[in-house]
Design a binder for these strands. Structure first.
Length: 571
DNA sequence: GTGGAATGTCATCTG
DNA sequence: AGCAGATGACATTCC
């Protein structure tokens, strides 16, 4: 800025005496007046077709909540097997049916169900391949659901038939406490506790699948947990509940946010993937401006290319040094004359256009053939020698029109330079390294006004390129962010799909265990050959695969203990 | 004539 | 200290 302080008033046309501090609007207005006189109504003609393209269509993956609902059955809190058996407080009529008590629980999983429904609605709307058929299987009572039909023993059930349940007796089971977990063993043994070892001769699926009592309980559908609240909560830890209430709500809300944003990640992704190859401006290293300059030097005006400019000899400046910028007012043909590596205004427009309309990306390959351009602020002499008028001008053949055309191609600074008879090109003024630039200035006898103009031209030209680079970077940053958002949304959708799959399989397993439980329990007989009351006894799986028949009260106590443990851990 | 997008310019900061 | 680049803000141009 210091070199501007010694500026002096130069000509009547151009106010060159102003330093940057006083380079105010009025001064610039004067310059504009001069420019207008020089250009005489010049018109710019390098607009990019389709520049006014619509903004990127933001088709929603999800178009809103449909409110689709599912049958009432819902995988709510999961409790132990023992909870599946009605307690003594249940209605008396339940004892006639082993299963019916399970259905009468007052526990209402409605809230969780609602969450689940919301989730599923979102999932379906997002076309995440959760077809309705599976959903129905998941969330509605299957036709053969034992919960909705009277329980009947299936003779050919896969449960281990060797379990000698018929020998179970109320009095002779206390010795089998060892089958319980230590926690169970620590419990005070009920006075008449009945522990019936149901150790299968072979390791059953139950043995391998369910390592502990509470685990077995996990696989029971919520219907089996109906007595949980009524029986003062022998509830066991419920991993599904955790999934469903907190995380599920979060995900649902996040998904809603994504929906409301209206962002179409697919389009943005396609756009980004195509565009990214040509854009070197980004946040991360993979999309850094330097990558642009290395991969596409023709359109780069990055700092890296600029630094190479500094190291290049002045003789090769035109080839390498021009940190590419091509003014809108320059002829495109001049680009070949100078062969400069230059930033293309068309490219900038393309960036914006492609950002707004991915369909425009089909034009991307053309960028590779964009001529290199070093002709920013090319001197009039150079223009005269190198410029080829457009066909229309040639047809008209008028020198006057050629002159008009050339005037049109010149930037304001070029006009100023010509008016001030600057003996070298604006291109050199702007792009020469400092040393070479000073050397060039020293070669000529220049007035203060000329020096001032030259330095202004250099400053403005460099800043112009910097601004263009800055805007390109900004655009690229936006594109990269959009791509990141799209990736995250894709991951999220995938995780949600997986979650649904896990929940589905979990529910199926719970139903299997429930059926097995009912079958085993229904076959149990006491010494008198009568079936055990589900309200008084419950089956319990031990960690070693054995199955025990224990009093309901003891089972409830265990269930409560199992439930407290995870809660304590959270604290 | 107007609005918005694109582009240019300036001021300022940073390396 | 000087320079070049980056960037926000504003101005101008263009459609």
């Amino acid at each position: 800025m210091g070199w501007e302080s010694h500026l002096t008033a130069a000509s009547a046309d151009i106010d060159l005496g102003a330093g940057r501090e006083i380079f105010d609007y009025s001064h610039r207005q004067k310059e504009q007046d001069v420019d207008k006189e020089l250009q005489d109504g010049a018109e710019q003609d390098d607009t990019w077709p389709g520049e006014g393209a619509e903004a990127l269509a933001r088709n929603l993956l999800v178009d809103g909540e449909t409110g689709e609902s599912f049958p009432a059955q819902f995988p709510a809190d999961i409790s132990s097997l023992t909870e599946a058996v009605p307690s003594e407080s249940e209605s008396p009529g339940l004892q006639n049916n082993l299963l019916s008590p399970l259905l009468t629980g007052t526990e209402s999983p409605f809230d969780l169900e609602q969450q689940w429904q919301d989730l599923m609605s979102i999932m379906e709307m997002q076309a995440m391949e959760v077809n309705t058929s599976t959903s129905e299987i998941l969330y509605s009572a299957p036709p053969g659901d034992p919960l909705s039909t009277n329980y009947s023993l299936a003779p050919n059930t896969p449960i281990n038939q060797n379990v000698s349940l018929h020998q179970a007796s109320l009095g002779g089971c206390s010795q089998d406490f060892s089958l319980f977990s230590p926690e169970v063993e620590s419990l005070p043994v009920a006075s008449s506790s009945t522990l019936l070892p149901l150790v299968p001769s072979n390791s059953t699926s139950l043995n391998t699948t369910f390592g502990s009592t509470n685990l077995a309980g996990l696989f029971f559908p919520p219907q089996l947990n109906g007595t949980a609240n009524d029986t003062a909560g022998p509830e066991l830890p419920d991993p599904l509940g955790g999934l469903l209430d907190e995380a599920m709500l979060d995900e649902i809300s996040l998904m809603d946010l994504a929906i409301e944003e209206g962002f179409n990640p697919v389009q943005a992704s396609q756009l980004e993937e195509e565009f990214d190859s040509d854009s070197g401006l980004s946040l991360d290293s993979s999309h850094s401006p330097s990558s642009l300059s290395s991969s596409e030097g023709s359109s780069s005006s990055s700092s890296s290319s600029s630094s190479s400019t500094s190291s290049s000899a002045s003789s090769s400046f035109s080839e390498e040094g021009a940190v590419g910028y091509s003014s809108d007012s320059e002829t495109l043909d001049l680009e070949e004359a100078e062969g400069a590596v230059g930033y293309q205004p068309e490219y900038s427009k393309f960036c914006r256009m492609s950002y707004q309309d991915p369909s425009q990306l089909s034009c991307l390959p053309y960028l590779e053939h964009v001529g290199h351009n070093h002709t920013y602020n090319m001197a009039p002499s150079a223009l005269d020698s190198a410029d080829m008028p457009p066909p229309s001008a040639l047809k008209k053949g008028s020198k006057e029109k050629q002159t008009d055309f050339l005037d049109k191609q010149m930037s304001r600074d070029e006009h100023r330079a010509r008016a001030m008879k600057i003996p070298f090109t604006n291109d050199k003024i702007i792009n020469l390294p400092v040393e070479e630039f000073n050397e060039l200035l020293s070669k000529y006898q220049l007035s203060e006004a000329q020096l001032s103009l030259i330095r202004d031209i250099r400053r403005r030209g460099k800043n112009k390129m910097a601004a263009q680079n800055c805007r390109k970077r900004k655009l690229d940053t936006i594109l990269n962010l959009e791509r990141d958002v799209e990736d995250l949304q894709r991951d999220k959708a995938r995780l949600l799909r997986e979650k649904v799959e896990f929940l589905r399989s979990l529910r199926q397993m719970k139903q299997k265990v429930q059926s097995l439980y009912q079958e085993v329990f229904g076959r149990l007989r006491d010494e008198n050959g009568r079936p055990y009351s589900p309200s008084q006894y419950a089956l319990q799986y031990a960690g070693d695969g054995s199955v025990l028949l224990i009093p309901r009260t003891l089972a409830d106590q265990q269930a409560r203990r199992q439930e407290r443990k995870p809660k304590d851990r959270r604290k």
